[in-house]
Design a protein around this nucleic acid. Structure first.
Length: 236
DNA sequence: GCCCAGGGGGCTC
DNA sequence: GAGCCCCATGGG
């Protein structure tokens, strides 16, 4: 199984190249981005992060001290902004009260202790917690998401309604626990989800995983077949 | 105008 | 624990 997963990883990596996640200047910025990106495209998050930076508010103290209304205005582009202000504040209050406003002291603790503490916070569920652990604290936990579910369901690995925990155990049970691998693997899955594996009308012809995909095969009868793809089939 | 996107909380049964 | 609704912007 490990070899199958690494083969999938290599197909994605060869097509897209390194993703170099997560785009941020500091670990704290990664964590803020992880909260803001909940159910919204990354472009909207960049706007909000830039706004916070421009107002010198992208810090533990900055967020703790700022008025809710002011923060709401700055992160409006990320949807559900009232809830997200509450989420950011709950995270930053923890860092201030328990870690002396020093994010690195928080991130340096043991991975599962960190996870437990994150999950107690308002607005941080499993996926956001794991994003923070992998991309901010740089510890080897495997992040799964809606794209992972869809892609690996279509590849034939998962049932469509598989739970988060089960998906995560699958990857962590079958891959070496390596932060760099987990970082790049999730980033590549995200790339496939965003570029090819749409819920409706996926672009199976261009997808680097098409050669392995059961969904593509079952979809072939209804999907428009391109000329060059037809030619490839005939040659065989 | 309409659809949908990298989640999580809270409620009900 | 599963199922449902709520939150409420921006781009195609």
């Amino acid at each position: 199984m490990e070899q199958r997963l690494l083969h999938i990883y290599n197909l994605m990596y060869e097509k897209a190249g390194p993703k170099n996640w997560w785009p941020a200047d500091t670990s704290f910025e990664v964590a803020v981005g992880a909260i803001l990106t909940q159910f919204v495209s990354w472009k909207n998050v960049v706007t909000a992060i830039d706004n916070l930076k421009a107002q010198q508010l992208l810090s533990v103290e900055g967020i703790c001290e700022a008025d809710d209304e002011r923060l709401e205005e700055l992160i409006r582009s990320t949807r559900f902004y009232k809830q997200k202000v509450r989420k950011l504040k709950s995270f930053c209050m923890l860092l201030r009260e328990k870690y002396g406003s020093c994010p690195d002291r928080f991130f340096e603790q043991e991975m599962y202790a960190l996870r437990e503490e994150l999950l107690k916070l308002y607005g941080i569920g499993e996926e956001t917690a794991d994003c923070i652990i992998l991309y901010a604290a740089e510890k080897p936990i495997f992040v799964v998401d809606a794209y992972t579910r869809r892609i690996f369901n279509r590849l034939g690995f998962f049932e469509e309604n598989i739970r988060y925990r089960e998906m995560q155990e699958f990857f962590m049970g079958n891959l070496p626990h390596d932060t760099r691998l987990f970082n790049e693997f999730h980033a590549q899955i995200d790339g496939i989800g965003g570029h090819y594996c749409f819920s409706k009308k996926p672009d199976c012809m261009e997808c680097p995983l098409g050669v392995l995909c059961k969904f593509k095969k079952s979809n072939r009868a209804t999907a428009p077949v391109r000329q060059d793809a037809q030619a490839t089939v005939k040659r065989k």
